[in-house]
């Protein structure tokens, strides 16, 4: 684990079902995340991914790489363009800094429209198991 290391990219196919499943699993019943007609009335062309799902995906992206013994300490995200159904979200990451067993990872998620999420994740790894 070194600063500058890239994490393998994760491509998430964002289907309509995925948007709704993420919203309901996070108990977010805002209509713009499940009702396309209501979303259009509010100026959006379609339903879109809710912030809790994006947050969950960023966390998953990092723990997928570092393994089940890694612990998330901080997750900070800022949303950019929305993620509508039918548009894959591609998460990429790079280790920005390492301090002992703690790494800070810069995460970027892009889709067809541009940058959907920019984030920083702090993760700690358990001490290596003695051989």
């Amino acid at each position: 684990m070194r600063a500058g290391d890239e994490l393998p990219a994760l491509t998430v196919p964002v289907t309509r079902t995925f948007v709704v499943a993420g919203a309901i699993a996070s108990r977010d019943f805002q209509d713009v995340h499940h009702d396309a007609e209501a979303a259009r009335a509010k100026g959006s062309p379609d339903i879109f991914l809710n912030i809790l799902t994006t947050n969950g995906l960023v966390g998953r992206f990092v723990t997928d790489h570092f393994g089940p013994r890694a612990t998330l300490v901080k997750v900070s995200i800022r949303l950019g363009v929305p993620n509508y159904p039918g548009d894959d979200l591609v998460l990429t990451g790079r280790i920005a800094s390492v301090n002992d067993r703690t790494a800070e990872v810069s995460v970027i998620g892009t889709n067809r429209l541009g940058r959907h999420v920019t984030g920083t994740v702090t993760v700690t790894l358990p001490p290596p198991v003695p051989a």
Partner: peptide, 28 residues
């Protein structure tokens, strides 16, 4: 479990007999 299904998160720490919750579920 519903969260992990929705997110596609197969982390074994979140399943089994003594699971922890995915930390990013905090707001949920």
């Amino acid at each position: 479990r519903h969260w992990c299904e929705a997110m596609g998160d197969a982390n074994p720490a979140y399943a089994g007999a003594d699971p922890v919750a995915p930390p990013t579920m905090l707001q949920a």
